[in-house]
């Protein structure tokens, strides 16, 4: 097997299996550990800046990926979005998300590892692994965005996106991905690592977005009926 078939043919499936099985296991075993692992008690000033920046950036990035990878090129063409307009949208969105996410992440990392001894006490190994894979993925992804800003760039919709969608049909188009530049390839491998780390880190908090709060009654009572 070539490195490409391991990286783009095997890795994603290993990651997805670990992601799914890991979540099921964690959900069943560890409701008690399922939390955002807030560290605001230990440090507030920098968190107030870093966390919103990072999160808004991260949510924009997720949205951007959904649009860039899941929406095939023929669809946008059919909708009459010209290549130029698409490129402009992708680049503006990408740069905005990247700048927010990375500046936020930089603040969060400096805060955690430089500013206060108290924060190191509440940092676990899973947090450190998560910061490494998430940080690498973000930096590599942003590299791709920047290259597209400053050069003619690479049309990932004819390589990365095709491979990405093919993963879900269980017929991974390894060749398509292998044809993309090194930073996209590395980005994809790191993203697999993020998926694998996800269920064992604080990232599980993402699935608990408390939207139910908007519709539930003011006071929660536990009654004998329950």
């Amino acid at each position: 097997m070539t490195y490409a078939s391991i990286a783009f043919g095997v890795c994603p499936y290993v990651a997805i299996v670990v992601f799914i099985v890991g979540h099921v296991w964690r959900w069943k075993q560890d409701q008690f550990g399922w939390t955002s692992r807030t560290s605001q008690l230990m440090e507030k000033r920098w968190l107030m800046i870093g966390s919103p920046l990072f999160h808004v950036g991260a949510l924009l990035a997720v949205l951007g990926h959904a649009m860039g990878l899941l929406v095939p090129a023929w669809l946008t063409e059919k909708l009459g979005v010209s290549d130029h307009v698409y490129h402009l949208m992708a680049v503006t969105g990408g740069v905005l998300a990247g700048v927010l996410l990375l500046s936020g992440l930089a603040i969060l990392l400096l805060r955690r590892f430089i500013t206060k001894a108290r924060l190191r006490v509440v940092t676990r190994r899973a947090d450190i692994v998560m910061y490494i894979v998430l940080g690498l993925t973000a930096v590599l992804g942003f590299t791709g965005t920047l290259v597209n800003v400053f050069t003619a760039g690479h049309d990932y919709r004819s390589t990365v996106a095709i491979w990405f969608r093919s993963v879900f049909t269980l017929q991974p188009d390894v060749a398509a991905m292998a044809a993309s530049p090194w930073y996209f390839q590395a980005h994809a491998v790191c993203a697999c690592a993020v998926l694998a780390v996800w269920p064992f880190s604080r990232l599980v908090h993402v699935w608990s977005v408390p939207l139910g709060y908007l519709i539930r009654p003011r006071i929660v009572y536990h009654t004998s009926a329950e």
Binding site: W34, T35, S36, R37, Q40, Y213, V220, Y221, H222, T223
Partner: peptide
């Protein structure tokens, strides 16, 4: 009223207010 997860509750039987540690997600 402020708990986004609905992890905090008041017992109707004796009014004691508690946090369900398994439902709390650390939104603080």
């Amino acid at each position: 009223a402020s708990c986004p997860s609905g992890a905090m509750y008041k017992r109707e039987t004796d009014g004691i207010v508690l946090v369900d540690e398994n439902k709390c997600r650390g939104w603080r």
